[in-house]
């Protein structure tokens, strides 16, 4: 009844509630990491951390042994050298992020600075739409269209024969995985960078142009500089998505725990591989086996740790920019 006389929430109280919520989130994340770490511990201990991260016998054979609870080489059911999977994760993610970021920067500059308004009105919503397409659809296109095309028209028979004793080339490959992954993560980067470039104060751009700098240089030296925090944020987000992409990569990467060998020259592009997240997806059926379960937890731990480090790295990289008044 006397509601309007009630004392308003003081800022201090609001601060405390928000602080508590934030802390709660941190606690949950910490508990999650600890839980996953405990579950991952058996396999890490068994193989030693260095061994686990390293290369050894064929990783797919090791995992098969874990699934069957047996071992071909003497009862060592926990044996795992995850090197090829980690290598595959780094390879696909790094390639897709580097290519995607470069592409995103140039597209965003084009959209903001050079595209005719009519074209811009079409591009911007299309990019946003692409950013929202579920990754499994990209995976479907990859496996139904791109992989067969690569298999039939890009990889020559002689190329297939040149490596047939090591690995079979069938279309799904590093190339297709990287292309589809790049296509998947680029639109969100374009959208973020475009928004950031739009929000660069017009006065800065005009100021640079009025000093006799051409539009391209003005963009590069002023707008892109001011948008660096958003560019970092976009790269972090895209990397996290690429790291965590399981289903799509399991469809198009070839699904083999193989390490594409750069010494094979161009052929490396057509060799299959399987990143960590895809490996998790492909082993959900075998989680009854204790060794498999521990391995999958270890994969998860690695991905979790990477994305935490990624966020932290992004945060730290943005700090020095605050000094000169760039909003981070």
């Amino acid at each position: 009844m006397f509601d309007r006389f009630r004392a308003p929430w003081s800022d201090r109280r609001a601060e405390r509630v928000l602080g508590a919520l934030a802390s709660l989130v941190l606690v949950i994340i910490a508990l999650m990491v600890i839980f996953v770490a405990i579950k991952a511990w058996p396999t890490l201990r068994h193989n030693s951390v260095v061994g686990w991260f390293g290369f050894g016998d064929e990783v797919d054979v090791q995992i098969a042994n874990q699934v069957n609870g047996t071992s071909g080489t003497g009862g060592d059911a926990f044996k795992l050298n995850a090197g090829p999977l980690i290598y595959a994760t780094i390879l696909t993610t790094a390639l897709a992020v580097v290519i995607g970021l470069a592409f995103a920067l140039f597209s965003a500059i084009f959209i903001v600075e050079f595209a005719p308004p009519r074209l811009r009105r079409i591009i911007v919503p299309v990019v946003r739409l692409l950013a929202a397409v579920p990754s499994v659809i990209y995976g479907l296109i990859g496996i139904l269209v791109l992989a067969p095309f690569v298999n039939d028209h890009v990889i020559s028979d002689s190329r297939k024969r040149s490596v047939e004793y090591v690995v079979q080339l069938s279309g799904t490959s590093l190339l297709v995985a990287t292309v589809i992954l790049t296509v998947m993560i680029t639109p969100i980067m374009i959208a973020i960078v475009t928004d950031a470039l739009y929000s660069v104060p017009k006065g800065w751009k005009e100021g640079a142009v009025a000093l006799g700098v051409n539009r391209w240089r003005a963009m590069w030296t002023v707008s892109i500089r001011a948008a660096r925090p958003a560019i970092i944020a976009a790269a972090v987000l895209a990397t996290a998505r690429a790291l965590g992409e399981g289903i799509m990569l399991s469809m198009v990467s070839g699904g083999r725990g193989f390490s594409p060998n750069p010494l094979d020259g161009i052929t490396v592009l057509f060799e299959p591989l399987r990143p960590l997240a895809a490996t998790i997806v492909e082993n959900v059926e075998s989680l009854n086996a204790p060794a498999v379960r521990s391995s999958v937890y270890a994969f998860a731990l690695l991905l979790l740790f990477s994305s935490l480090m990624l966020s932290l790295g992004g945060y730290l990289a943005k700090q020095p920019m605050k000094k000169y008044g760039i909003r981070v």
Partner: peptide, 29 residues
Amino acid sequence: RRRVAMVFQQPNPFPMSIFDNVAYALREQ
């Protein structure tokens, strides 16, 4: 635009140091 310079209504220094602001055109040109 190098010969005919302009100062705007709203001060629009770049988000850089004082030195870099003044040096900007010198460097770019």
